[in-house]
Write a protein that binds this DNA or RNA. Structure first.
Lengths: 195, 195, 195, 195
DNA sequence: CACTAACCGAGACGGTACGTCTCGTCTTCAC
DNA sequence: GTGAAGACGAGACGTACCGTCTCGGTTAGTG
């Protein structure tokens, strides 16, 4: 049995945490990532700045948690084909990146992560982990069907899919065309199919 | 013949502009994009801050010009195959994004561009124009060879290629593997080839 | 009984205030009023600029407090004659206006006060209040002795005395002759004595 | 006969000088002395800044000339008494200091003069010379009448009169009461009369 | 029931950067 | 050489944030 050393002192108030997350999510949409300040979050949440810094080390960590932790990772359907599975996966990336909060936060947030060595090392595990698990499963199924070989480069394909969606929507700011997922998925699926 | 109304007043000193560009390029590598300040550029260039603001409207414009205007756009060789041509094109993207100045500047710079409506609208013409011209030429040659159809989506393929390279190198921070260009190009080339 | 609502937040640090006042007093002598900058005061006091602006609204208020609040208002002796009392009063004005800090600050400071409606309205209460109290007392004694009538114009006489000393020493820059107080006081005393 | 070496080049345009003086006089009233900038004067006068600096060494010199050189020095009437003559003289000081341009310019202008050694030395000759000549004449007449002795301290009396008026009107900002000149003059006249 | 420890809101703290303004000088072309 | 125009290096302005610190006060568990 694990025995925690009893926590001393007043416990943290979960209502403060919730108010901070809510204020952050609102402000990042209203002001944009760069213009959003910790002080403004504290004021909106009726909270002291220290209460924020006690829980998060800075703006990137805070915004990451406010925007990307509520995400629900629904299982992907098995469509029976690599291209169909990939289309569903790309569509889920599009949905995730197009949500107002994510759209407002992602470019600046990823830039801050990329600029900080400690944070950069965590990008794969934080932003890409669910997508990687799903892509791995899609690849497994494709290999079982014989559509693909055993040596598919998961990370590289994932970077390509995520990069394509992030760049097209997040950086360029293109609206997601209805068939965008299908077109990207078709291109990549054929590229990695066994010949 | 166009006749310019004679410019009045003291002309801008090109040496100041050059010193500012040089100082910017140095500082963006030394400090990173976010930590680089206009005041520090002015000090390093021995120039007043106004002399910078007179020429550029802010940090994004200044860094863009300092980092991405010196680029030489060498013509791509005709390798005889779509995959070969694409490999050369992706390699040029990798080289461009891996250069120390570009690597230091790109994530923050693109985030700032994406966050400013006026600037966002110019990303295609500023960052992607040379690559698009070359991709168009690659597609033309492929169509003439019968490798590809006439309806290739240039922008979408370009966003995918640039997004993949930018995300893989610029955001994730992966070092460019020697065969990276070949692997990405192979995947995309097969994806768009005529069947 | 007055009950103050408990002050919230971290209280202001009196050591910062003292360091700012000290730095201001030094710099106004070293640089002169016009050349003294808030930034230089902050640097000398090892204090952020906000810490100054939090306490004072600008240079005039800051310099006023640094230079004219330390003044000790010693009581005037009762010399037995109007002329003697006035001489003592004028001498105290001379001493006050001749002090290095006051000499360095006064012309520019009064000009800034005079140029700002809000501040102009406070000149009498800030700079002249102690002198007015003493002049009132001098007049009271003179009236009790029968040297003067009851309707002496305190403000006008005070403006004349202060103006004479300020103009002679502060503007013209004349050194105070040893008998300056006696000469001015004699002139004014005879001018207001009952005939 | 003195022969000037022929002036070379284009002669200075008197219309520029006039436009500068006019713009200065207007702006000092509109903006106040401190807020008036040379650049604004140049713009209003449709003149280059150099054209101003070629003629005046800085703001104090320019404003002095714009505001205090147009003054007409009408002769004082001989009223037959020291007090009457002094009243007329004080009234002329009041009129001079109350003019809108002078009122706007004087405190800051005198502060700048007082802060600059070169300029401080010229205050007597620039601002007080006409008044001193007139006061000397008033004293001469008083001495001829036997109202005053031969050793009257002209500079000290003048500093007192000018200081009283400048302080009362210019610094405190009091409106000139109709009998102000008479009251000041009466006080001083009795103070210096022979007993 | 006192004591101790961590949390809380508020806001002051030293510091840095911002983008604008003014200074007095310099550099161009036109007259 | 004078003129208007305007660029130049310098540096002050007052504001906004940063992340930390310091108050009085609250809320828990421990002795």
């Amino acid at each position: 049995m694990t025995s925690f050393p009893a926590e001393r002192g007043r416990p943290r108030d979960e209502r403060s945490s919730a108010a901070i997350i809510k204020a952050t999510a609102e402000l990042v949409v209203e002001s944009g990532y760069a213009a959003m300040s910790i002080g403004a979050v504290a004021a909106r949440a009726s909270v002291g700045k220290d209460t924020i810094y006690r829980r998060w080390s800075g703006k990137p960590e805070l915004v990451y948690e406010a925007v990307f932790t509520t995400t629900d990772t629904a299982d992907l359907p098995d469509t029976g084909t690599l291209q169909g599975d990939l289309t569903a996966l790309v569509q889920s990336l599009i949905d995730e990146f197009s949500a107002p909060q994510a759209a407002a936060a992602l470019p600046g947030l990823l830039a801050d992560f990329a600029a900080t060595p400690d944070l950069r090392a965590t990008i794969r595990s934080r932003f890409l982990k669910p997508a990687k698990e799903r892509l791995t499963e899609v690849f497994d199924r494709a290999q079982q069907r014989g559509e693909a070989g055993a040596d598919l480069p998961v990370d590289l394909v994932l970077d390509t899919l995520a990069g394509a969606v992030f760049f097209h929507l997040g950086i360029i700011g293109e609206r997601p065309a209805p068939d965008l997922a299908r077109r990207i998925a078709a291109m990549i699926a054929r590229g990695i199919e066994a010949r």
